[in-house]
Design a protein around this nucleic acid. Structure first.
Lengths: 223, 223
DNA sequence: ACAAAAGTGTTGTGTATACACCCATGG
DNA sequence: CCATGGGTGTATACACAACACTTTTGT
């Protein structure tokens, strides 16, 4: 075993998903350096031993650097590796899924022209194996979204149940969930709790606002 | 950013699980080198850029080196990282879950005295964060086992349905699954198919033998 | 009064659980 | 003919999807 055997490149890539104008969208940045300079890519960067306490810390840091924000929902996805996925050499990318309401990106985005939030149905060609990583993220959202409150990370709290249902429909790729079943499950499983306000700007009857009871809840039944 | 920032250690650790005498057990090897020399630890090793085509290839290789065998069921678990988990420095461990029937280990194990298969209820202290990695593996087995044929990787094909049910009971930590429901689900969801032989060595009525229809099947209902 | 959106009931269909029962084989 | 383990049927309770219906608000 020679010296080169220990020189793998270690990076983190984050799939930052949000819901923009009713469509699932992903945050991409123009790459500043080669390879693939100026091409749109997932938010990512090298792990820095000196400042990062874990790969998750790297994810938090690169998100802060590219969006100016912190406090995203963040979950490890999977790790991609091999000699060919990066032209610089044998590389490891620890991939993360991040979720955010669009309202948080609406402001700061304008300050950093490099960050673009692109609908997943209108993606440019992505460098490295970022297409695969994004596919894994969407599959996780669909899969885990069916039995957890994961999709709630895509909108602001508080929300109305109708709003939340629309988020689930988009996240799961299901055109129409049943209103009655959806509400019963969320309330009976104690996943949401009402806040003392109602939404008044919708035209019809004023809707009760809710928030999640405790972070991301996972349950055994499907939504 | 200085040069040390790119010098993370990249390793792979494999949680090799099997079913030994009715109990869940994990394959451990005595470490040959410091740190923690001679202590029992998960099967693992450095990623070697020159010979490994991916982290999964590293997992396959270290399994071959420690057990003399190939062809295990293998699935990526998660990646553990940080400055403190390994005294040698900032490290990344890509963890894998491997499953095997005990019969495969029974033979070659005796050839390599370093490999021990230890019941998970009688574990020694493990080095690094191997305790955490093992916990993640058991949780994956329990979680995914409830809606997939994952636990079948713990026994030989062909098997009787009673045998398979016992494996599920141990893997999921459930003392007693209902026989009728278990059988109905496996057959109605087309997960197993009968082979043309029956088990004759059980005392009572001869049992039909089955095998999995197509690798590890995942389904939406619980077992 | 009407439209629009929120929110609730009702009903048929299916699925799970628990349990009892029958079948085949060896001693 | 009894013990042992394999294999099947059923009844009750529960969960779900679909759909209709009622309620509240703005215009």
């Amino acid at each position: 075993m020679n010296a080169a055997d220990h020189k793998q490149i270690v990076t983190v890539d984050v799939v930052l998903l949000t819901l923009r104008e009713g469509r699932l969208a992903v945050g991409l940045v123009a790459r500043e350096n080669p390879p693939f300079k100026a091409q749109m890519a997932l938010i990512g960067g090298y792990v820095r031993s000196a400042e990062d306490d874990s790969a998750e810390a790297t994810a938090t840091r690169v998100l802060r650097e590219k969006t100016g924000l912190e406090g995203f929902f963040l979950e490890q996805l999977a790790t991609f590796s091999g000699p060919d996925r990066d032209p610089r050499g044998w590389s490891v990318s620890i991939a993360y899924l991040a979720l955010t309401p669009w309202s948080r990106l609406g402001g700061p985005v304008s300050r950093d022209a490099r960050l673009k939030v692109v609908p997943v149905e209108a993606l440019p060609d992505l460098p490295f194996d970022h297409g695969q990583i994004l596919a894994a993220a969407l599959e996780r959202l669909r899969g885990k979204g069916a039995y957890s409150t994961l999709p709630a990370g895509l909108i602001d709290e508080p929300f109305t149940l109708t709003e939340l249902q629309k988020v689930y429909e988009v996240a799961l790729g299901q055109p129409r969930l049943d209103k009655s079943s959806f509400r019963r499950k969320l309330t009976e499983l104690n996943l949401v709790e009402p806040v003392g306000a109602r939404r008044t700007d919708t035209g019809g009857r004023q809707a009760q606002l809710y928030r999640l009871k405790s972070g991301v809840g996972v349950f055994d039944r499907r939504i």
